[in-house]
Structures are given as C-alpha cells and as structure tokens.
Design a binder for these strands. Sequence first.
RNA 1: GGAGAGAUGGGUGAGUGGCUGAAACCAGCAGUUUGCUAAACUGCCGUACCCGUAAGGGUACCGAGGGUUCGAAUCCCUCUCUCUCCGCCA
Length: 423
Amino acid sequence: MLQLPFIRENKELTLAGLKKKRVANADEAVEQVLTLDQQRRDTQKELDDVLAQSNAKAKEIGALMKSGQKEAAEAAKAETAELKSRSKELEESLKALEQQVMDVLVTLPNLPHSSVPEGRSAEDNEVVLENGDKPVLGDDALPHWDLIKKYNIIDFELGIKITGAGFPVYKGKGARIQRALINFFLDKALEAGYLEVQPPILINKDSGFGTGQLPDKEGQMYFATADELYLIPTAEVPITNLYRDVIVSEDQLPVKNVGYTPCFRREAGSWGAHVRGLNRLHQFDKVEIVQIRKPEESYQALEEMSLYVQGLLQELELPYRVLRLCGGDMGFTSALTYDMEVWSAAQQRWLEVSSVSNFETYQANRLKLRYKVEGKTQLLHTLNGSALALPRILASILENNQTPEGIRIPKVLVPYCGFEVIN
RNA sequence: GGAGAGAUGGGUGAGUGGCUGAAACCAGCAGUUUGCUAAACUGCCGUACCCGUAAGGGUACCGAGGGUUCGAAUCCCUCUCUCUCCGCCA
C-alpha cells in the first residue's frame, strides 16, 4: 500500500509511477484519494475537538459531584448531550471516510523503481543478461511431458483421479529428484546465511492482506470455506507475515529467511497453449527466500538475491537469462522485479523459474513492519525471491539432459538423489 | 466436541466507574558517583492519527467489535485466542 503522506507530498511522482505501471485511471484515483484524505483529516480535527470538550466537561462534572454540588452537576450533564450526538455523527463519517480512502488506496499498485523500463507486456521486458550454452538436441528429442511417461516418473492421469488437472503424482526417481532439489536449495540458502523456517501453508485474511494478495487477487487462491483460510500461493505470504505488526530491533536486521512449501494456485482463466506438462500446475513445490532490510540497503540486497539465484542455476548447469520486468508486466506490489528464465531445450522456449523483487515499503506499510531509527519508527523494506520453483527446473533438466542412455542428473544433485541417471 | 478459568505496556504483574496511558518490579536507554570488568543513585523508557515551521498541544488504543454512562482497563453483550480437565486422534 502506498503511503498517504508520500502521495500528498509527491503527487506528480506518484502519477508518473502509476502511469509507468499502466494504471488506467491514475489521475482520477489519486485525485480521489487526496480529496477524501483531506476530508478525513478535517473530520478528525473536528471530532478530536468535540471529544476534548466532552472530556473537559466530564472532568468538571466529576469535580462537582465530589464537592457535593449536585445541581450544578446536573446542569453540566445537560450540556453534554449535544456534544455527544455531534461526536457520534463525526465518528461515523470519520469511519466512512477512512474506509473510502482505504478502498481507493488498495487499488493502487506500488510505484516502479526508476530503472524499470517502460512497456506494456512481457515483450517489453529488458534482457539483463544471458548465461550458459543452450544444448543442441537431436531430432528425436522429447519434450518433458513425453519424457516423464517414457521413464514413468510423473503421472498426470493419476493426479487427475485423486484431485484434478494440474496436480501431478511424482513417482520413483521423479519423487526422489523433487526431494533432492528441495534439500539442495535449502542447504544452499543455509550456507548463504538464511534462517530456515517452516510456516503454515494455510493463511488467514489478515495475512493475505499483508502481502497484497487480498483484496484484489482473491480468485487466485484456494479457499477453505469452513474455516475461512486460504491455501498459500507462495511461501512469501506466511513468511513475510511472520513480521506483521512487528517493530524489529535494529540488531536483528537484516532478516533473512528461507522456507520450503508447496504452493497452490487456481490459475483461473490462464490455461491454454504453452501450459502443458510441468509448465503450469495448481500445486507445486518451491523454496522461497525472504529478506527484510533497512531502506538504504534494499537494492543492494536485491542484487545479492539475484546473484544468489543465478548461482543456483549455474550449479544446476542450466542456461538462463535474467529479465528486468517492464512497468506493465510487473507485479502489483513490486517496485523492481528480476525474472530468471531457464532454457527448455526441447520446447525451445524460456521458462520462468524465479522472480526476485523489492517491494520497498509497499508490503511493510500494510504489514506495519517497522524498526526504530533515532527513536522514530520507520517502515522497513521487504524482498523475496524464488530459490527456486521446482517444476520448470525439473522440466528443463529433463529436456536439456536427455541422452540415448537416459537423463543425466546434474552433478550437484547426484549426492542428494542417490543416482546419476534416470533410465 | 463438553466443562471451567483467563486475555493489561518488551517481560512479570497491580488496578473493579472519575485522582489511570495506566502502580511496582525486571529488562532497555541517558547521566551522576564510587579505583575496579560491577554496584548505588537520578532521569527517560508504548503505538497511531490530527493541529503546529517548531516548541508544544489534542484524540484514540488495557485481545477484537458493539453497548450502558456526563465519565469505562474497570459494568453488559458478541466474537477471537490462550490455559486446565474430560473426550477423540496423527
């Protein structure tokens, strides 16, 4: 959520940012927020004054009662009636105005960092770098959805029976390589100084609001109606919400957490071409890194996180590229996002496997996540990144490493898998 | 699921209608002093919003929401959570 005082003092900057993010009704929305906010403040001033008068009168009455001046006290009581009804009115309109400000404010996305390129869609994203050699496969190379059948390691039909489309069953070496990847990713994060956490994978409304999934992305999450809990779309949500309503003491910074969780996404309306096999699932596994940083350090941290993720891809011997997302393609809550894509040799396309973002104060403002600087509380910056999401990593390992003798497991994973080839 | 008890500031914990934004103690911060890796003493020590260039002032908050009252941490209602006992159970 954007900070109201910031919008007030930086209206033009706000508008420019929102337009870069391709917000359709930016002028209108900002104007509305500022007008409502002014009304809100006026109303609060008036209410506070009325309440101050009421408090003074109440004290007066108390004193009169004590000194036995009953009649004077009764007379004073009569005077409070008007103040009371007035304060009630004002309180109601204050509440209404606060709600209205909030309603518009939550529709505004985060402002993009100055380095974010202009653009409308994925085609406008900036390729920051490309690394690794794309393998050249023979004509008989298979896409991963055929390889998983050939080697009987992932079963989509079985998943359909148990749950539905997009919920695959991993079997044998398929299950073992999943477990290997998770452990590999967690171990690497531990080496890099992250604290491992195992959060719940169901979250309440407040948590959904804290990281920005609610109110506007309600339809993307599975919802357990009996208990009003959402299945997490990413570990970002529970891990970042660990720090909701927290004033972190300076010596605990920076916070670096890593967690493995399954992730659940309804992906309503996003099925079609290019989503075969492991390319898009309703349930998948992911290791997520989350950092909480002082504002002045957050962009340096973002670069570190990007390099960290790239290091993982290098160790897995996967050709990858890094994109800086353009204003129109960025997430709602992000100020700057790098996407990491790996080359999927049989499909001949790039697959997104990680998204590393700095949210600046946007989430922290919702979370009320702060620290103290010289006695004053100040919002912190939150960042997170996939490190990494499994399915597409697995897809490209399967495709890129296929040989007539079977699928070669990347060296770093062999100790974790306990086998060198899937055949 | 059934029965009972409870929820106060970073922690412990007092407070049952006005003198309480809240005692006391601990932790923390600043300083004074003592010749010793510590003690004693003094002061400070919650959050948010509003007015103000500032100094400063106002308002709200004692699990959450509502109500009674001139006045609520304190009384009433609803909800949430925690603990204890019983039941069930990985």
